[in-house]
Design a protein around this nucleic acid. Sequence first.
DNA 1: CGGAAAATTGAGTACTCTCAACCAGCGTGG
DNA 2: CCACGCTGGTTGAGAGTACTCAATTTTCCG
Lengths: 259, 259
Amino acid sequence: MRRCNDAPKRHNLIDPSLFTLLFRRWDRHSALSKEEREAFSALPFVRKTLPKDAYLVEEGRPTSECTLLLQGFAYRHKLVHDGARQIISIHIPGEFIDLQHLMLATADHNVQTLSKTEIASVPAAALRDIGARYPALQRAIWLDLLIDASIFREWVVNVGRRDARTRIAHLLCELALRLDASGTDTSPTYEFPLTQDQLADATGLTPVHTNRTLQSLRKDGLIALSSSRLTVLDWDALRDAGDFSERYLHHAVRHPGRS
Amino acid sequence: MRRCNDAPKRHNLIDPSLFTLLFRRWDRHSALSKEEREAFSALPFVRKTLPKDAYLVEEGRPTSECTLLLQGFAYRHKLVHDGARQIISIHIPGEFIDLQHLMLATADHNVQTLSKTEIASVPAAALRDIGARYPALQRAIWLDLLIDASIFREWVVNVGRRDARTRIAHLLCELALRLDASGTDTSPTYEFPLTQDQLADATGLTPVHTNRTLQSLRKDGLIALSSSRLTVLDWDALRDAGDFSERYLHHAVRHPGRS
DNA sequence: CGGAAAATTGAGTACTCTCAACCAGCGTGG
DNA sequence: CCACGCTGGTTGAGAGTACTCAATTTTCCG
């Protein structure tokens, strides 16, 4: 809408279908009109291709943009004093990786690509503006943030109070379910972008112990995992092993009265 | 603004000075006008006194209200399959404990009081409405949520990649700094509402090990801790011991352009 | 085909846990 | 006023999950 015909300089870099994954995900919790989608698509996104291991966000840096993952995976992490790394979340295609930059002026963690990725960045101010104009978009953005926060809470529980096997199974369940929901992959086989070292850093374990624990999950017939592909062989068993309950993902939120 | 003069039925239960702590905290990141404070104070808050251990939020329950802690402490937690508990955050006077209810329809965790508390609850819809009308209030609310999320991230790191001594020291640093900032307590002695069992559940340790670790911190002259009072005897040493860096608390956020 | 990254295996270690008993503070009641 | 009982804190000893170090094999990719 509104004059998008005459000024295609920046956003003609963007194929509208690129937002398919995002919109599909948002549809689960926020009904968006055609007008809202178009307004969103008309934002001054800048598209980029990044190699594996590239930094998307760096701790301590001032923030000004929000970045949407179009293709590929990314992970959020922090380093502790002795150089160890804790991965805080994994991000899949169709997710914003740093919506907190809407209001927080300084990055408090790092985000790196797990694989070659395509991203689309937009100034945080532009996102704030469009949110102010379209309440449904505002709602979708904030819901994403709240669900992220809910996942962080579950991760605190996961690394805080579960043993190695349960932790890893839980993480696999979460990733499988999120990939399913986003429609990027179909059950029961998923792209799995983490090395065992990274899986260890996500679960607070050592790589060696992670390796042995994965073998145990394989031996018990719960999963197959090799060459970046995860197959869930027995969902119920994996779910049990991971003490997994999907409530925290809020995949089906009830709409509170818009207001 | 609009007729708040004629309907004081509910909010005359609230003494405006009760929001002092909240407003003082919000002042750090969101400048609020007199009008905005008054509009906020005029919301239909309901005030209540709760005993120790009372549930403020219960996992699985539908949500409809947001609750502000006026006095006393509360903790957020989840239970895992084998009955173990992980505490996810501690909340101090002047903080909202469940702003995520603005949009999430079902509680994904529990919140319980740590001590006798006074709270003020307000319908989530009323908070959403006032946020839509007053951007500065909206901003303050969302910043609180984003800072909460940042704290969750740091907790993932804390329980995931730090040893017992560092974990506990880190948590003590965080609490001391937050209490300082909120003005509820003055350095170097703070009210400390957690039992060792709860401290263990917050750090992912066992009570026994927590006890021994605390003794080590005491022996080394970093802290004094007894009968619900924490004294930081050597801030620099405690900070070092806890691998603590306060950036994630975002106590001084730069204002992004209001929009 | 070669080199680097990732995965796997082995053996010894240690941080943290478990179990269990004991102590201390404190509010209640006889 | 002191006994009682409960909650919270402390101590001891033994066990185990997960860690460390180091070597080896496999996979990936140019």
